[in-house]
Computed example of a mutant assay.
Amino acid sequence: MNTPTPAMQAPPLLFPAPALPLVPVTGSTALYPVHRIFCVGRNYAEHAREMGHAVDREAPFYFTKPATAIAPSDAVIAYPPGTANYHYEMELVVALGAPAFRVPEADALNAVFGYACGLDMTRRDLQLDARAKGRPWDLGKAFEQSAVIAPITPAAAFGAVGPQRIALTVDGTARQEAHLSDLVWSVAELVSHLSKYYHLAPGDLIYTGTPAGVGAVLPGARLEGTIDGLQPVRLAIGPAEA
């Protein structure tokens, strides 16, 4: 007589597995789990110029942030370690809700779940030092709480990307203003291009680049970023950690 074999059990974890960051969705109790974060560089011509570069119109380029970079709107974030030049960058964030691999531009928007206001917070001095040495930008861009995001608005409720105004204020003073029609590479172009190199998936975010007017903030600053038709993103800068 055969003795039943106990069901195979998963091996124990050495420590608890980290939870995925979750982003609220407007008009829903469901939450959006974040998988990966792609960020587009120099996607507004005026910002490229203020950073000392012409726009590269051959193809978009990217850097990434870890999921641990996600911070919710209305957070208070400590001034980060290792920098004396901490910058804001206001951005439209694209949230994917379907797989996309080698998709043509005409079909790319089918993978988009929704849009959100976001802040790409940057240790500018570390980024520029790495850039000058021909090194990756990770220390300047890919750090904790550097990808701030407001609740996601479903694409059907937002409509087509184009005429909407994107803007940011610091302590009530206007610092950035443009329109989404100023994007060098459109949302469809970005999704299609990225899908040539990645199996894009639900939970992937694309921070689409920032308009001109980036600058430094200090502890005590309060930021508010807006895009017509989306929930605003707000952030307060706290003191540096002791």
Rank of each mutant, 00 (worst) to 15 (best):
Y86R: 04
N85K: 13
F158T: 03
D125W: 13
H179G: 11
Y207T: 03
V23C: 01
L218A: 14
L22G: 04
L218I: 10
P81S: 10
M121L: 15
P219N: 07
N2W: 11
I77S: 03
A100H: 10
T169I: 03
A30I: 07
A19F: 06
P6L: 08
E89M: 03
Y197Q: 05
M8G: 11
D125L: 09
P4A: 00
A201Q: 15
M1D: 15
P66T: 10
G27E: 09
V112D: 11
T68R: 10
Y62R: 04
L109G: 01
G220D: 13
V40C: 00
P136A: 03
L128E: 15
S181W: 04
L235Q: 01
A142D: 08
L126V: 01
A17L: 12
A45Y: 07
A174S: 13
D138N: 14
A201G: 06
T5G: 01
H35K: 15
P202M: 08
M51K: 05
P60Q: 05
Y197W: 11
L126N: 02
Q127F: 10
D129M: 08
L183G: 03
F38H: 09
P99A: 10
C117W: 08
A157I: 04
P66K: 02
A106M: 02
V148R: 14
A201C: 11
L96K: 05
E177C: 13
E91H: 06
P239G: 02
P33H: 07
P4G: 01
G159M: 02
I206H: 08
C117F: 08
F61T: 12
P80Y: 11
L194Q: 11
D171Q: 05
P4H: 02
P11D: 09
R123P: 00
Y115W: 00
G27A: 08
V233R: 01
G118K: 12
V170N: 03
L13E: 11
A45Q: 10
V103L: 14
V184N: 01
A106G: 11
L109R: 14
E91W: 07
R165V: 13
P80Q: 13
A71K: 06
V55H: 04
A116Q: 07
A84D: 15
G225I: 07
A216R: 15
P136K: 04
H47E: 06
T153S: 08
N110S: 15
A106L: 04
A30L: 14
T68K: 09
